[in-house]
Write a protein that binds this DNA or RNA. Structure first.
Lengths: 209, 209
DNA sequence: TTGCTTTCAATACGGCCATATTGTCAATGC
DNA sequence: GCATTGACAATATGGCCGTATTGAAAGCAA
């Protein structure tokens, strides 16, 4: 194995330990020593691969956000390409991937939220967050734009504004759903309602993307 | 002055120091010692009025949320009673009070968010948060119900669901606006759009509340 | 006056944390 | 063969934290 590959493997091993610790004990439960134990390695080994704790945490953050975003993208693309869903439906399902709908996603949501909250006071983490979100937002705006060309979205719509609104709604619904899992169905229906408001029409033939 | 009153004054003095510290240095910047310095008192004095740090923090949290909720309520009521605004408009403005629209509200938002994030891992704080939010939600649902009787809201609307959706949207918009103040106008217009979707109609005479 | 309670102030204490230091051992280069 | 480097492990260090302890004033009841 290439040494570079091995290096990334080790870093990943530590990063996964960080996310597991956050999932169980919250962000405050993450210390270098505990991470080492959780990863089954020594403190010195962690230090060897991450020069500071901040470094370690930031790496873990980028990992978990990348995983979430990739899943959203995959779900939406799958519906779009394979099942020829409407853009509205593909986006609804893609965005829903971000919600804490089952135990796995609850854990992931909790970890992401813990990171996001620290990002407010922590420029290094804030960079990760803002770049990820602006990527999602432009991806959304692009889809809305495609919706116009295809007839699902009215011509006058402000794609950027609506994209921002949708993302904000999903984040808010995620928070409320996390704190009160019993409102899961309600969150999904509100998400659906919002998407229907943005995409009130039906696709004509020969739609793009 | 009654001793009870004096007691509350002291506790308030400490609580305000806590919120100031969070506003400047984030939640992690709050320690008992620093709070004492910020409040201009001794550590022993803080201990005298709060048996644990948790106690101190929880008290500060209830204070800041009460302040925010009171301002929202006041603004909505003012528009409703004094200016005879539509319910839609009163609610829009009331909910907008929760957004980080200026420096003062940015600070308040940051403090509330720091608390809310800790609440995820911290049952004592979670109680404060959930009770506050369910209060706002039922207040909102009540207003939507009134909107039905008066004609602003269609009869078939699900007041509880829409209330939850609106609150989630506001929380999400707050987060995004905080991280990127340049989207303030966009957030306001999205809020307005959402309220217009819930309250599409116009009030008949003799409306309730 | 005496003694008890409240209100604080100063400081001690024990623990945990991030990081630095130091050393070991194997691989690699020459 | 031998110095060098990379990959760790073990432990030391210094700092900060929450809380406990101790005690000094001050008010007040008897």
């Amino acid at each position: 194995m290439a040494t570079e590959e091995y290096h990334e493997l080790r870093r990943g091993q530590v990063a996964e330990a960080v996310t597991r610790l956050i999932a169980v004990h919250g962000f405050d439960g993450v210390t270098v020593a505990k991470t080492a134990v959780e990863a089954g390695v020594s403190v010195g080994m962690v230090q060897h691969y991450f020069s500071t704790k901040d470094d370690m945490v930031r790496y873990a953050y980028t990992r978990v956000t990348e995983r979430t975003v990739a899943r959203m993208e995959r779900r939406a693309t799958e519906l779009d390409r394979r099942h020829h869903s409407s853009i509205r439906h593909a986006l609804t399902e893609g965005l829903a991937e971000r919600l804490p709908l089952d135990d796995a996603r609850r854990t992931e949501w909790r970890v992401s939220f813990a990171f996001a909250a620290r990002a407010v006071d922590h420029p290094a983490l804030a960079t990760v967050r803002t770049s990820t979100e602006s990527a999602i937002r432009s991806r959304l705006a692009e889809a809305i734009h495609n919706g116009k060309e295809c007839g699902e979205v009215p011509d006058g719509a402000d794609a950027d504004a609506q994209a921002a609104g949708l993302l904000a709604l999903v984040d808010g619904l995620g928070l409320h759903t996390y704190l009160d899992p019993s409102m899961t169905r309600l969150a999904l229906s509100e998400l659906d309602r919002a998407l229907s408001a943005v995409f009130p029409g039906t696709c004509r033939e020969n739609r793009p993307r």
